[in-house]
Design a protein around this nucleic acid. Structure first.
Lengths: 219, 219
DNA sequence: CGCTTATTTGATCTTGATCAATGGTAGTGG
DNA sequence: CCACTACCATTGATCAAGATCAAATAAGCG
């Protein structure tokens, strides 16, 4: 059996996969676009590792306004709130505070919370590694707050493109998600995303043809 | 010696203080307003627990635009990136990815990173508790992203006021920070904060007199 | 081929930023 | 005690970035 991509890659939350070590015993889930991994308020029973494809984490206000808070790509993990005890005493996990769904066809590995906790309890190094990974994740979210508030639409779109470009094999690549989804992640409307892409193209910072993009590097 | 407020209160990252258990051996730092706890890029040697007062965590872009990413209040901890190893192999901690400074007179407890790690290594329960706390912190940051993007200035200001009100003994309380600082935390300009406060007062949602505020609850 | 979903593009509107001036208040030193 | 000086807060006028509304293609796909 082939080792899974999450373990192979320099993954963000490696420890989440330690109980699997690349040899999934329960098999991975193969999901179509638009499938939910979990919903806000559900009991948080699983942690998900994305093997391929993209997943959007989002949360919403009481009155229904929603915002994507994180784009989860290959080698990354979502649903980590399963590790947060709902109360200090009970061993129960809490509920998911947001929802996650696939933005493209995706392969994900579903790790039961109990299994992960057992692993953490048994190996102190796993726990320390996970702490490191969580701290890293905190830093990334703080950066998200920074650029979502101070950066212009142009800069935000460019940053997202660079994220996709980073994992693309060739300098010219396909955008895996729609303008609308890009907007949801960036806090912009779909029309602004479209306009911004064309403006960037006109400035010569990228070439654009439908979903095919080529970044002409440098700032 | 009196037990410290961080341990006494229902604190956010309790584990950070386990090596102290409320009996600070090295004494706490007493800081004036505007004192930095740490600066972006500095080697991350300490974790700080806020005992009283408020601290702003902020980060900035290469070209100098800055944004507050977190308000750290009594019972909370900042500088946790000290626990992130700079590389997987070396035991060195990395550098702070943002800076933190006091927004008011404050009492903080400075815990050396090594001490904390030792504690985590020795007691698996500490490590698991810290994981839980970090996950909780992640959730809070995701909420920050949500409301900074979808909420209006009015809602954001109100949310911050409610945060201050939560720890105030009486329904009428003093704002511990300036309009400018509120703006930095909320992603608004100081003038907008001022205008918004007065608009809220005019709507009867609060009474305002200088720094003294009283919230007229509900929605 | 028809249907659904994406994308582009235009016109208008809102929110909050920015620039700027004024007034208030707390220290500080004479 | 009083002037002087910072810093803070308020308020007005103007401006710009994106949102929103709307319509017209384009692109997949069964």
């Amino acid at each position: 059996m082939q080792r899974c991509a999450v373990v192979r890659s320099g993954l963000t939350l490696r420890s989440a996969c330690l109980s699997c070590s690349g040899q999934p015993t329960r098999g991975q889930l193969h999901l179509e676009r638009g499938q939910p991994l979990y919903l806000e308020g559900e009991p948080a029973a699983f942690v998900y590792a994305v093997v391929s494809g993209y997943v959007r984490e989002q949360r919403s206000t009481a009155d229904g306004r929603a915002q994507g808070v994180r784009l989860v790509g290959p080698g990354e993990v979502t649903g980590i709130e399963a590790l947060r005890p709902s109360t200090a005493s009970s061993g129960d996990s809490g509920t998911y505070q947001g929802s996650a769904e696939t933005l493209s066809e995706a392969q994900v590995c579903r790790v039961p919370r109990a299994e992960l906790e057992q692993e953490l309890r048994a190996h102190e190094d796993s726990a320390l590694a996970l702490i490191g990974a969580l701290v890293r994740e905190l830093e990334l979210l703080k950066d998200t707050i920074l650029w979502i508030t101070v950066m212009s639409a142009e800069e935000r779109v460019l940053a997202l493109l660079q994220r996709f470009a980073a994992t693309a094999p060739s300098p010219s690549f396909q955008l895996p998600i729609t303008r609308l989804e890009m907007g949801r992640l960036l806090g912009l409307s779909h029309s602004t995303v479209s306009r911004t892409l064309h403006r960037l193209a006109k400035q010569g910072r990228l070439s654009l043809e439908g979903r095919t993009v080529r970044l002409w590097s440098l700032s």
